[in-house]
Every structure is written in structure tokens, then in C-alpha cells.
């Protein structure tokens, strides 16, 4: 039996269509679920990196 999803009857194609939507839903969920996780203090190496990056960019 051929299963048709959204007018597409090839599972190889509608699966891709659905996976696009599902992976987007997952990314939305991940972002929201971890919205306040992963906060890190600014370390000396972070500051040094920024200073060096700015120097390089300003030179350009």
C-alpha cells in the first residue's frame, strides 16, 4: 500500500519533509528547555580573546 502524506506518495520525500519540521520543532524545544542553562562567567582568557580580536578587526 502506498502511503500519501501531504499529496506526496514517495516515503523518501515525505519523510524528508516531516524530518525538516521535526528537527525544527526539536531545535525550538531545545532552545526553550535550555533557555537559562549554560551561563558562564567571563574569564580572563575570554577578555584577552576579545581584546586581540578587536585589535585585528580595527586594523582592517
Amino acid at each position: 500500500m502506498i502511503m500519501t502524506v501531504l499529496g506526496i506518495d514517495d516515503a523518501g520525500v515525505w519523510l524528508a519533509y516531516l524530518l525538516c519540521i521535526l528537527s525544527t520543532v526539536y531545535s525550538i524545544w531545545y532552545g526553550i528547555a535550555n533557555w537559562n542553562k549554560g551561563d558562564e562567567e567571563v574569564l580572563p582568557e575570554d577578555k584577552k580573546w576579545v581584546e586581540d580580536e578587536k585589535k585585528a578587526e580595527e586594523g582592517l
Binding site: 525538516c20 519540521i21 528537527s23 525544527t24 526539536y26 531545535s27 525550538i28 524545544w29 531545545y30 532552545g31 526553550i32 535550555n34 533557555w35 537559562n36 542553562k37 549554560g38 551561563d39 558562564e40 567571563v42 575570554d46 580573546w49 580580536e53
Partner: peptide, 21 residues
Amino acid sequence: MTVKSSKEINRAVSIGGIFIL
């Protein structure tokens, strides 16, 4: 490298997914 913490990367995942779709 230009973001402050992993938190910003976590948050950006949601908008990034929608944007690419």
C-alpha cells in the same frame, strides 16, 4: 567564538532552526 556563554548558543538553536527551515 564571539558569544559570551553556552547559554547564548542554547538560545540561538531555536531561532536558528526556524530560520534555516
